[in-house]
């Protein structure tokens, strides 16, 4: 246990002091991106990892919140009402989405979420009077929570970090809560859970809502970061990317989606500056992960570490 606490403390110190040891604004911005994509991946992980319900339409929920922020700001609303509106719209969309998709599980669930995602992408693309089509919506300025200006890279990083920590804490509490345990139960033994008197559908529905809330929060951070939203954000490739973050890092673990988000964002934005075929590299990394540690980077590393540790101490598992 003590080793865990030391690692946690070291991570916290590293994150809080990051702007001081990281060279340059660019890398601080990359760190902000990792954090909000991690929140997005944590959101998807709730249903994909703990609930066993793989969604291929999550980018649409992410995009709805981003669009609502853009739309409301354009129509003269303040930042507070734009953010609140975006959260409500995100939750409302998630409720509809869950109500429709939860009629099925497995492949059926994937296909319904895929279809819903494509519908919303199509709307963003074609409902030009609201979304401005593929030219997208530009935002001017970021909000000032409690009068603090977060326009600089460092200030925005801290704002994102606070939201990120809150999201991680919320997920940690959720996983340990009875609802979290029940959700994992519905993933592993849905019929037994049903027989035990649990309302499987309701458990899954509320898990979707929690997932949608985190996704909306990430979408709001994203739109304030890029200050631009266009239909590409809602596309299938974005949904697939966040799913890859979850699977690469380790579905159904707390740390996995965070590591996965870091991996994807770093390869996409930093490594791609050095390697022209960065898509290929990303693909190769995923293949390697699937072959060497199919459970994901985080659980896989823990397994290898334990084996090495036990090997050194001369005990066999």
């Amino acid at each position: 246990m003590r080793r865990h606490q030391i690692a946690l403390l070291a991570a916290a110190v590293a994150l809080v002091t990051l702007p001081y040891w990281m060279s340059g604004v660019y890398y601080i911005n990359v760190a902000s991106q990792i954090l909000f994509f991690a929140v997005f991946a944590l959101g998807l992980n709730i249903i994909a990892g703990y609930g066993g319900l793989v969604s291929l339409g999550h980018a649409a929920l992410f995009g709805i919140s981003a669009y609502v922020v853009g739309y409301l700001l354009q129509h003269g609303f303040g930042h507070a009402s734009a953010i609140l509106g975006a959260l409500l719209a995100g939750l409302a969309a998630t409720a509809v989405y869950a109500a429709l998709a939860l009629r099925a599980t497995g492949i059926g669930f994937i296909m319904i979420t895929l279809a819903l995602g494509e519908i919303l992408w199509g709307l963003a693309y074609r409902w030009i009077s609201v979304t401005n089509g593929d030219n997208g919506i530009n935002l001017h300025g970021r909000p000032q929570p409690f009068g603090i200006d977060i326009n600089s890279a460092t200030a925005f990083y801290y704002a994102t970090l606070i939201v990120f920590v809150a999201a991680v804490a919320a997920v940690a509490v959720f996983v340990r809560s009875p609802l979290g345990a029940a959700l994992m139960g519905t993933r592993d033994q849905p019929r037994r859970m049903n027989a035990l008197g649990y309302h499987v559908w309701a458990i899954r529905f509320w898990a979707c809502m929690f997932s949608g809330l985190l996704t909306s929060v990430a979408g709001i951070l994203f739109v304030y970061y890029t200050q631009f939203i266009s239909p590409q954000t809602l596309a299938l490739t974005s949904s697939a990317e966040v799913l890859l973050m979850v699977i690469a890092g380790g579905a159904g673990t707390l740390l996995g989606p965070i590591v996965g988000a870091g991996l994807v964002v770093v390869v996409k934005s930093v490594v791609s500056g050095f390697i022209e075929r960065w898509n290929f590299l990303l693909g190769a990394i995923f293949v390697a992960i699937v072959i060497l540690m199919p459970e994901g980077l985080v659980p896989g590393t823990v397994r290898l570490w334990r084996r090495a540790w036990q090997g050194k101490n001369g005990t066999s598992p």
Binding site: G24, V25, Y26, Y27, N29, V30, Q33, G136, F222, T226, F228, S230, Q232, T233, T237, K268, S269, S272, G273, E276, W278
Partner: peptide, 21 residues
């Protein structure tokens, strides 16, 4: 030379890379 990947968020990141780094 920076590859944006043809998507807006990637373009923003790469523009920041060119300007800030």
């Amino acid at each position: 030379s920076a590859d944006t990947g043809g998507n807006p968020a990637g373009t923003k990141t790469k523009a920041q890379e060119l300007v800030e780094r």
